[in-house]
Computed example of a mutant assay.
Amino acid sequence: MEKTDAVTALAALAQDNRLDVYRLLVQAGPDGMTAGAIAEALELAPNTLTFHFDRLRMAGLVTVRREGRSMIYAARFETMNALVGFLTENCCGGVSCASAPSSKPARKRSKTPA
């Protein structure tokens, strides 16, 4: 993924409603969801949703297909995988991060009677 594509994708997701739409489409899986079902689930007006779909499509994060009278939107997982790969390609200075020690949560102190 090129830097400009990463910026475009991040910018598209940097808005509450678009992020909610994308996350809902990820949950729906490759079959996607109709625009009406998304509008209902997120309580968004259809004309507002159209604007958000356009931004997500232009960023390559979603696809749309027509089935009869319905528009079906689906997440493009390959784009998100490429974005995550771009963001982490130089992670940990090129050393595998999987072997990094995990931090343990701080222990709570118990109250002792005085």
Score class of each variant (00 low, 15 high):
Arg109Gln: 03
Thr48Asp: 14
Cys92Met: 13
Gly94Leu: 05
Thr4Ile: 13
Arg69Ser: 15
Glu2Cys: 06
Asn47Glu: 10
Lys108Asp: 12
Gly85Asp: 15
Ser99Val: 11
Asn17Phe: 07
Ala98Met: 07
Met80Phe: 12
Ala11Tyr: 10
Val62Tyr: 00
Met71Pro: 00
Phe53Asn: 01
Ala9Phe: 08
Leu42Cys: 04
Gly85Val: 05
Arg55Tyr: 14
Ala14Val: 04
Ser103Asp: 05
Asp5Met: 12
Thr88Cys: 08
Arg23Met: 15
Leu49Lys: 04
Glu67Gln: 15
Ile38Tyr: 00
Asp54Thr: 14
Arg18Asp: 04
Thr34Leu: 02
Thr8Arg: 15
Ala75Trp: 00
Ala100Lys: 10
Ala37Met: 02
Asp31Ala: 13
Arg76Asp: 13
Gln27Phe: 10
Pro101Gln: 02
Phe77Met: 13
Phe51His: 14
Ile72Ala: 01
Gly68Ser: 10
Pro105Val: 02
Ser70Val: 05
Asn90Lys: 08
Cys91Ala: 15
Thr34Asp: 06
Gly94Gln: 05
Glu40Val: 03
Leu56Lys: 03
Ser102Pro: 09
Ala35His: 03
Met80Cys: 07
Asp5Pro: 03
Glu67Lys: 14
Leu19Arg: 04
Ala41Ile: 00
Thr50Asn: 12
Ala37Thr: 01
Leu19Tyr: 05
Glu43Ala: 11
Ala6Met: 09
Asp5Tyr: 12
Phe86Arg: 07
Cys97Val: 05
Ala14Cys: 10
Arg66Trp: 09
Gly29Arg: 04
Ser110Gly: 11
Leu42Arg: 01
Gly60Trp: 09
Leu83Asn: 03
Asn47Asp: 11
Ala45Cys: 04
Ala74Val: 03
